[in-house]
Write a protein that binds this DNA or RNA. Structure first.
Lengths: 305, 305
DNA sequence: CATCATCTATAGTTTTAAACTATCATATAT
DNA sequence: ATATATGATAGTTTAAAACTATAGATGATG
């Protein structure tokens, strides 16, 4: 693209030295090379920029204007180069993180705070969408990384963050509310389970659980919010199935309900940080994962269940 | 200089198409060429800008940042190119004009007004300095053109603007104040002439006049302003020699003095617009000269002497 | 499950751009 | 007049950037 950055540098050198010869020396090229480039620039712009003479080189008013602009342009290029330097390893970028709704609101407030403390220059935008949507957005590149269950995003790389058990949530007058001990699978037989809408990982897990326990999934309500499920359960609409993070943070302080762990190996899910296997940001993701892991642990250990 | 403007364009094309192949097509180059340039850019910046994969190309957050900056830079280059287009002939630049003090304040107020009307985009900065100084500044390039007497700036090109006669200026009680008719050279014999300081064209002209007429140049005062000379003359300090433009505009309305034309062929000077013979702005100068000529004519014809 | 289409990367070659050296023309300064 | 600045020009060499052809890898398709 004409004029070239190099040509602009040459013109500035001519402007500052007032001589083609000295400008060429400063630019570490021969005088003819520099002359040719300046001439080419003038041809390209269709204007005379430099007045040549025995006295050396004097810029025309237009030439001076071009020099001013060239300086700004070259400054912007320098700045462009600068932002990439010293920033290859450490986490200083702006990153787009996707998260499923059953994790985001409970893990991220604390985790983002820690991230800010540890990496002050790091900025992150968070998108909360159901499993199906963040999978699409991870693949098409509109998200850099996501927090989800790895098995729902095949062909991606991931690192585990924490394991979540599933809990049931019933009103105090329910037949299952008698104790806080873990509930056996067979206790759920024939009971209505409340579920989120289509496209959520949790919905699949709940259907799976129903199949194994002999329960059925109520079609009465399909929401996107765990709070809605919990409140429906409190009103006696069925058994809410909640992941432990939510159970710890929210459900445990609601006196209208009783929560119990499900006593089954498969009633738990592994939450991971996931990215495209082609992404060059693996190091950054691992740094983020470290912080997320710690935040999750802290959240879980704060409660001594 | 790396990264190149071309490389930036390529990166933007990749960012907008999401595919190396399509980006290359849009840029009218082959895909490998574009790939190589992007790779070179990444090497230069030391960061991965594009994530390659089966899906095509996805920019990293850093890549997106670079694209934003590249867009601004390319925009500035486009603007640079734009300011030179359509402006090769017509007068739209900013120009630096030098003028001698015995002409500037009397000619330019009117002339600049006309210039602005005729060429609205034209901007001019005016420097008023003595002949010696504007000559130096014309030569070293800090002025583009000057209004002066051509013979004081050898080796330059010029176009005549107007001819100025020299006038004398004496107090009403002077022996020379009896009439408004032109004064003969020999009438000045033995009289003290008031002069500007060293380095002014007028000073040389006055010394020349003294030599030819048998007058002498008073050493009482050496100023830079014609007004000062006039006022000293009004106080009886000697005969002020004034160029006609000043005589018309200022001295003719001062009732404390009488002005008379000098009746001698050599008692006049040719004021010209002058520029370096190497300057590429000849056309512009001629446009300016046309306006200056008209302004001077108007000024002179307004008075019906 | 093989085939095809679609990505980008790599290798080797050709073309174009930009550099070099040497020399010229011109004007200023000594 | 001679030496020493200036930038321009000619011809050559080097380096950058383009091309063609092909490989490798993955996802979609019959």
């Amino acid at each position: 693209m004409r004029p070239t950055l190099k040509q602009m540098q040459y013109l500035i050198a001519v402007s500052e030295t007032g001589k083609f010869n000295e400008a060429a020396r400063r630019m570490n090229v021969s005088q003819p090379s520099l002359s040719t480039q300046i001439a080419d620039m003038e041809l390209e712009l269709g204007t005379t920029l430099v007045e040549r003479g025995r006295h050396g080189a004097i810029l025309t008013p237009m030439g001076e204007d071009i020099v001013r602009r060239a300086r700004l342009i070259l400054g912007a290029v320098e700045e462009l180069k600068f932002v990439t330097k010293n920033k290859s390893d450490i986490l200083t970028d702006r990153m787009r993180l996707g998260v499923i709704p059953s994790v985001g609101p409970y893990l991220l407030p604390r985790a983002t705070k820690t991230l800010h403390q540890k990496y002050p220059d790091f900025r992150m935008s968070v998108v909360e969408e159901r499993t199906l949507d963040i999978d699409r957005r991870l693949r098409d590149g509109s998200l850099d990384t996501i927090i989800s269950t790895a098995e729902d995003h095949p062909g991606s790389e991931s690192t585990p963050l924490f394991k979540e058990a599933l809990w049931i949530c019933v009103p105090p007058d329910s037949s299952l509310a008698g104790t806080h001990d873990p509930v056996k699978l067979q206790d759920l037989k024939g009971m209505p389970l409340l579920s989120l809408g289509h496209g959520h990982h949790l919905t699949l897990a709940i259907h799976d659980l129903a199949k194994q326990s002999g329960a059925y999934v109520s079609s009465e309500y399909e929401g996107t919010s765990l709070d809605a499920i919990r409140q429906m359960s409190a009103m006696g609409a069925g058994i809410a199935i909640l992941p432990s993070l939510y159970a710890f943070v929210e459900a445990s302080r609601d006196t209208d309900i009783v929560v119990r762990r499900i006593d089954h190996k498969k009633a738990e899910r592994q939450i991971s940080l996931i990215w495209r296997d082609t992404s060059p940001l693996k190091k950054s993701f691992e740094q983020i994962a470290e912080v997320l892991k710690q935040s999750a642990n802290t959240l879980i250990n704060e409660r001594d269940w």
